[in-house]
Measured scan of single mutants.
Amino acid sequence: CHSECLGNCSQPDDPTKCVACRNFYLDGRCVETCPPPYYHFQDWRCVNFSFCQDLHHKCKNSRRQGCHQYVIHNNKCIPECPSGYTMNSSNLLCTPCLGPCPKVCHLLEGEKTIDSVTSAQELRGCTVINGSLIINIRGGNNLAAELEANLGLIEEISGYLKIRRSYALVSLSFFRKLRLIRGETLEIGNYSFYALDNQNLRQLWDWSKHNLTITQGKLFFHYNPKLCLSEIHKMEEVSGTKGRQERNDIALKTNGDQASCENELLKFSYIRTSFDKILLRWEPYWPPDFRDLLGFMLFYKEAPYQNVTEFDGQDACGSNSWTVVDIDPPLRSNDPKSQNHPGWLMRGLKPWTQYAIFVKTLVTFSDERRTYGAKSDIIYVQTDATNPSVPLDPISVSNSSSQIILKWKPPSDPNGNITHYLVFWERQAEDSELFELDYCLKGLKLPSRTWSPPFESEDSQKHNQSEYEDSAGECCSCPKTDSQILKELEESSFRKTFEDYLHNVVFVPRKT
């Protein structure tokens, strides 16, 4: 048989008469490798580009789960590009990614509803959504962080984005990388972005840091009482949809009607710091009717980097990364020049730590249904340095008659930039024990000054392991946590139920 035959053949030295091919099969003959313009397919066939392209389009058009959109890589027609490569849609070739590779997620039936953290986790790592997304989240724990972890990498949506009755959302900033909504599939009414009845939605994105392009379709905003109209108009300008909307697409009466839409800028007039305090004062603000001013709200939190936005980490279910302080308005003076500047002394802060701070007014709604208010920009203030805590785990070892090696770990709280350490030492008198000992005694162990690591005695271990207080009263049991108490109650309830079950099964009433 021919060298490319495997198993047997019907005619000697003829690659077209093989029972099976050793390498690849091409047009009725066995070959060692697939010549151009053919590609290896499933490690035994040679196919042309049209064959591989037909497989790709067949799966793409069917949208069946589990099928493969075949691509070409290293002269092979394979189910998908290997790690580190992405497909070129024009020629199906796998090309190296520039940075992290995109991950295209194809949605069944063309859309997916995100109504819980669990459903959001199914899209973790996706960068391109081939379909439409509907966000409908009523509640949950730590929602802002969970949504950002699972949806934060999405850069492109081919269909539309719909935010509907998501009472738990305060902001859409968890879509931190969303840059493009194509609108290839539109919501009824030709809408590519749809926001309806979101009672706590206050911000779409921080438009000073976020760009969003909507290729096709219109915007729809109705019944978002805490979303200011200025935020919607800003989205029109940034996304390129200005002029597409009709009169009733953006409701003037049901958007922002319960919001404090600040239209003035508060400026800080005085800032002073110490290692654990920050004193702030800002310019006074009074609405047209000074009785509408209820006070100020001061927001602050630790910020290692200057990239904080107002609604980071917030949701309507209680999660809030900001510390909020309510401040009463100052006494009002008739003389504008003698107006008191409101302020606040922030206490209990960490030394040498940068804080993000902003302040906003708290006002009631005027009778004319106009909203007044003022808010400052987010500023960054760093507390002063102070003395560091003591170095940890000092170790001293003498390696000769004239040297001592000293080692330690950095302090747990540096409280500033540590530039150097101060080492103090003092000579001590020799131990009298060394002169009084009889060095001729056998088995004498000389006193040693070398360091030995501390260890816990058996008594201390027994005390720590004991669940009861000892007789001397030195140790006591740790208080039980809520989960331990709940577990004990469940076990007790189970024992009672099981005992009742045994009584009912074992003891049967005697027939009379």
Rank of each mutant, 00 (worst) to 15 (best):
K103R: 13
V104P: 04
H106R: 05
L107Q: 04
G110L: 08
G110K: 04
T113V: 09
T113I: 06
I114G: 00
D115C: 05
D115Q: 08
S116Q: 02
V117C: 04
A120M: 09
G125L: 12
T127H: 03
V128E: 00
I129L: 15
N130L: 13
G131C: 01
S132H: 03
S132D: 04
L133S: 00
L133A: 02
L133D: 00
I135T: 01
I135A: 02
I135P: 00
N136Q: 01
G140T: 07
G140I: 11
L143M: 15
E146Q: 09
L147Q: 02
N150V: 02
N150R: 08
N150K: 10
G152H: 11
G152M: 05
L153E: 15
L153F: 10
I154P: 01
Y160P: 01
L161E: 00
K162E: 06
R164F: 14
S166D: 03
S166Q: 14
Y167H: 04
A168G: 03
S171E: 14
F174L: 07
R176V: 12
R179S: 09
L180G: 06
I181R: 00
T185W: 12
E187K: 13
Y191I: 14
S192G: 08
Y194P: 01
A195K: 00
A195E: 00
Q199R: 12
Q199A: 07
L201N: 00
Q203G: 01
L204S: 05
W205G: 05
D206S: 07
L212N: 01
L212T: 07
T213F: 09
T213S: 10
T213E: 12
I214V: 14
G217A: 02
G217R: 02
G217C: 08
L219E: 01
L219I: 11
F221T: 08
P225H: 08
L227G: 00
L227P: 00
L227I: 10
E231R: 12
E231G: 13
I232L: 11
K234E: 14
M235R: 00
E236S: 08
E237L: 13
V238S: 11
K242R: 11
R244I: 06
Q245T: 09
E246G: 15
E246I: 04
E246D: 11
R247I: 13
N248I: 10
D249Q: 03
A251N: 13
L252M: 10
N255S: 08
N255W: 05
Q258F: 04
S260W: 03
C261M: 01
E262R: 07
E262S: 10
N263Q: 11
N263L: 05
N263H: 05
E264S: 13
L266A: 01
K267H: 08
Y270R: 05
I271Q: 13
R272F: 15
F275R: 15
D276V: 01
I278S: 00
L279Q: 06
L279D: 07
L280T: 09
R281K: 12
P288W: 10
D289A: 05
L293Q: 13
L293H: 06
M297N: 15
L298S: 01
L298C: 02
F299T: 06
F299S: 02
F299G: 05
E302H: 15
A303R: 06
A303K: 05
Y305F: 06
Y305W: 13
V308N: 04
T309F: 05
W322Q: 03
P329F: 05
P329W: 04
N334M: 06
D335F: 14
S338E: 13
P342Y: 07
P342V: 09
M346A: 05
G348Y: 02
T353F: 05
I357R: 00
I357M: 02
V359L: 09
S366R: 10
D367Q: 07
R369C: 07
R369E: 06
R369G: 04
R369Y: 14
Y380G: 01
Y380A: 01
Q382P: 03
T383Y: 01
A385T: 13
A385S: 07
P388E: 07
S389H: 09
S398V: 04
S398T: 14
S401R: 13
I405N: 14
K407H: 03
